[in-house]
Write a protein that binds this DNA or RNA. Structure first.
Length: 298
DNA sequence: CTCGATCCCTGGACGC
DNA sequence: TGCGTCCAGGGATCGA
């Protein structure tokens, strides 16, 4: 499941491997995950991949027309979201195509840039000019670029649960389920805690551990769970450093309490019930409190 | 604004 | 060995 560190890893690999390559032609398979397939077929051939960037969980292949005609000088880019199971990597033509290969771009150096995505939860879009800018503006701050005041401003008055805020790409771009859970565990914050209920110390802690965890995960080329591989076909190593994600039933590394899995914001959330104290409900009636206590101890 | 529910899709886990 | 069933999960969408 590619999140910020995995996408960063792939983007860096692609930058090294295919920056400067001209796209000669394109072949599409299934296209239900592509915004406008005809635009790709019409516009990509003859353009050069200037550079590959990460934008949240998207990769941004910045493009330039080789024979720029009048009026064809505006910014253009191919946005690629890997969804759950997407991969984008250059391959020699001689390498057999994997099942679920849906986009193949022939490059000037003879290789093919192949997009493979069994579940097709990914997304691909060719965008230029104003629509491109608008698309990018939909998203929130990059957690590695935001400073502390901006981080705090995006969370502190929000009535949503902190887990939901971290996963919301219009709040922060790039954070997914693994790194949200790992950060909340490290900062000792319960995933269901409301943003507005976090104090300044907690917000500062969360900001710092989120950056630390993302940076370390990038250094280790991301987490390879299920079948994530980087552009060189190498797995990441950060999954060996997970402290809570996927560890329900196992013991907390800090306090030995059994890690639990609950659903928050519609997603599996792993946490330590001891280190990450459940939010205390406000203004509960005495009867409600008693009922809850009985349920806990009974 | 915020929530939960539902859908998309396939492979892997599991039960028999 | 081979079914059928259930589930994960990022994001879009819709109704409450």
């Amino acid at each position: 499941m590619p999140e910020l560190p995995e996408v960063e890893t792939v983007a860096r690999g692609l930058q090294r491997e295919i920056a400067g390559q001209e796209i000669l032609s394109i072949t599409l398979g299934k296209t239900d995950f592509i915004d406008n397939p005809e635009a790709l077929e019409r516009e990509l051939p003859g353009r050069t991949i200037v550079r590959v960037e990460r934008y949240g969980k998207f990769m941004l292949l910045r493009l330039r027309a080789n024979h720029a005609t009048y009026g064809d000088t505006e910014e253009s880019a191919l946005l690629v979201h890997l969804g759950m199971t997407g991969s984008l990597a250059p391959q020699a033509v001689s390498v057999p195509q994997r099942k679920h290969t849906h986009v193949v771009m022939q490059l000037a150096d003879g290789r093919e840039l192949r997009y493979v995505d069994p579940r097709r939860f990914g997304r691909m879009a060719y965008l230029t000019g104003e629509p491109l800018l608008q698309e990018l503006q939909r998203f929130g701050a990059d957690p590695l670029e935001a400073d502390l005041p901006e981080f705090i401003a995006r969370v502190q008055y929000r009535k949503s649960r902190i887990k939901a805020l971290l996963l919301d790409q219009t709040v922060f771009r790039g954070v997914g389920n693994i790194y949200a859970d790992e950060s909340l565990w490290k900062a000792r914050i319960h995933p269901a805690q409301l943003g507005s209920r976090l104090n300044r110390r907690q917000l500062k802690e969360l900001y710092e551990v989120l950056q630390t965890i993302l940076k370390k995960a990038i250094l280790l080329r991301g987490s390879s769970i299920s079948d994530f591989l980087d552009a060189d076909g190498e797995p990441g190593e950060y999954q060996q450093h997970h402290r809570v994600y996927g560890r329900d039933g196992k013991r907390c590394f800090r306090c030995q309490t059994i890690i639990r899995r609950i659903i928050v914001a519609g997603r599996s959330s792993y946490f330590c019930p001891n280190c990450q104290q459940a939010p205390r409900a406000r203004k509960k009636t005495r009867a409600t409190k008693l009922r809850k206590q009985r349920g806990r101890t009974g």
